[in-house]
């Protein structure tokens, strides 16, 4: 892929991929790793797209899968007992946040992707279902549960 095309694609889709990865992982470092892997897969697979919307949906799906894979990686599985045993971890370089974003990051991981795609990328439930390869009913269920949890976190009845 030539440099100009690469720069164009990063400009068009980079932020969307990075933000989805951040919503899913909660870590800017991991989000950057995921974004990198996602775009490299685009180069390697070189699929045909109908239009940029199609390309965007493909990238978001791959990013969601890569972010999920990151937490399943061998390192994390085998290192987990040590992490659980550590009473004190080195503090995260990112200070704790408050607000809606923090509330989403406090959700269990499986809910964050659909919440982000619905509330930020403004996909419909049907579109999210197609994008992530899941049933529309599952998307509705996860959104519904996520809203209930967000409502409790943010302590406002009709906030969502």
């Amino acid at each position: 892929m030539d440099s100009a095309e690469a720069a164009r694609l990063v400009e068009l889709h980079g932020q969307a991929v990075y933000r989805l990865a951040y919503a899913r992982t909660g870590s800017r470092e991991d989000a950057e790793d995921v974004a990198q892997e996602t775009f490299l897969r685009l180069v390697r697979a070189a699929p045909e797209f109908r239009d940029e919307d199609h390309r965007r949906a493909w990238l978001l799906r791959v990013a969601a899968n890569c972010a999920a894979d990151l937490t399943r990686s061998l390192w994390r599985r085998r290192r987990r007992p040590l992490e659980e045993a550590e009473a004190l971890g080195a503090p995260s370089p990112e200070p704790p946040e408050e607000g809606a974003l923090a509330a989403v990051l406090a959700l269990p991981e499986r809910y964050r992707t659909v919440v982000h795609l619905y509330y930020f990328e403004e996909y419909s439930a049907a579109e999210i279902a197609r994008l992530l390869g899941m049933r529309e009913g599952t998307v509705h269920t996860r959104l519904s549960r996520a809203r209930a949890m967000l409502r409790e976190i943010l302590e406002e009845g009709d906030y969502v």
Partner: peptide, 24 residues
């Protein structure tokens, strides 16, 4: 709040550079 989560210019350049260098 999410709009504040951004790849900076250096990160974008690095990403594009990796893509350009990667074999198809």
């Amino acid at each position: 709040e999410m709009e504040q989560v951004l790849l900076n210019e250096r990160q974008k350049e690095r990403l594009a550079g990796l893509m350009a260098a990667a074999p198809a």
